[in-house]
Design a protein around this nucleic acid. Structure first.
Lengths: 214, 214
DNA sequence: TCTGTAACTTAACACCGTTAAGTAAAATAT
DNA sequence: ATATTTTACTTAACGGTGTTAAGTTACAGA
């Protein structure tokens, strides 16, 4: 058995190597400039070999998209110990924007690019392991908002809808930044418009409850 | 002179036809599935002819991107007669989301796809005519918020930053919807999550000022 | 009538994702 | 120990992409 397990291990290693190389190229030059052929060349295999490990290009980027959620959850995990749920909510929004600004290409893949969603559509992967990570991230937000509601915040609002809306608000900032729509409008002398906008969203949350502005 | 003016007119007509055809194909099958060769085939010219009228593909989609802003401003113009600036602001956010949902491909081009921003970068087109339309749209939002501030809303907040933040919030909704990230998270029984979230943003604006919830 | 230019096309370059068919080596069965 | 099957990979190709260099054709002005 030791010989077949070695083979299996080697297969997994190559699959991991493809993924790791795809990630590296993706970080270096972005999704649009990364091809299957580029990946193949760098790992010194023929392009067709990649198709023995992944169904198609979408499938590769779907896998990376999963890794992105693991990384995002690392940003979130540090926030678990923030006791007050309202403060935690605001910390989540800052952490989210920080994650996006520090990992632009990952963010693109996770929330903007069509490719990984195509992979999801093709075969119903929705109940696969990797989505645990996606659910964990969104769940953290939902739970925090539910705690807020339990404490008297956001009275009468639906927790899940509010979670989605909050997500939308910070996502808007991040995606405008990443897809370069800030520079167009920013003759305002704001050097870091994204973070400033994030602060303003938190300020808006504050004002909803008449907490004195910072 | 009448003969050379005719020629000039014909040139403009062909340029317009290219654009119109690009738009049609774009609406039919989306940006990713529209090629220069597709456009050429439909207008019954060779692909290279298109390069006599547009620098490259980005240039074509930059031009369409401009048309999108004209269309968006049509949605906005109907809101000019809303007297109260706070009500107008909420009407703007609804109109914006409506525009996005009704013109998904245009929205994609205007606010998500990289291509038109590349064209902007290449030659500094920033001071060109078409951006009048972009500025008009954003200016309408800024002016409305300035009026709100003058009436005592959003005390102590910077109008331009708040305008950008408001834009971000609704853009977040629209881009998650357009790039299919709603379905992933929406086991919530919300059939029209985007509009519901837009309503919630308006509700948040309301609560910032203790106006009774609807 | 000759010449130059404007408008357009043909052919090609260098890429892309993807697949069918082939190969060589190793594992398994006889 | 030999024959057969399976595994892991490659070669070659298909049909597409954006883009450009070079060639053609028709027509305006001299």
């Amino acid at each position: 058995m030791t010989i077949s397990t070695r083979k299996e291990r080697q297969k997994e290693e190559l699959k991991a190597k493809i993924l790791q190389t795809a990630k590296a190229l993706f970080m270096e030059r972005g999704y649009e400039e990364t091809s299957i052929r580029n990946i193949a060349e760098r790992i010194e295999y023929s392009p067709t070999t990649i198709y023995l490990y992944f169904k198609d290009k979408d499938d590769i980027f779907y896998a990376l998209h999963g890794e992105g959620f693991v990384l995002l959850n690392q940003y979130f995990r540090a926030l678990g110990h923030v006791e007050d749920p309202f403060e935690r909510l605001k910390a989540i929004s800052k952490a989210y924007v920080t994650f996006a600004l520090e990992n632009g290409e990952f963010y693109d893949l996770m929330f903007i690019i069509r490719s990984p969603m195509n992979a999801l559509e093709k075969e119903k992967k929705k109940e696969e392991l990797n989505w645990e990570e996606g659910d964990r991230a969104f769940g953290f937000l939902v739970n925090t908002i539910e705690e807020c509601i339990a404490k008297g915040y956001f009275k009468g609002m639906n927790a899940e809808v509010l979670a989605f809306t909050t997500w939308s608000m910070v996502h808007g900032i991040c995606s405008l930044e990443i897809r370069n729509r800030c520079s167009v409008v920013s003759e305002m002398n704001q050097p870091n418009l994204a973070m400033t906008a994030c602060d303003m969203i938190n300020e808006i949350l504050n004002r909803m409850h008449n907490i004195s502005p910072s």
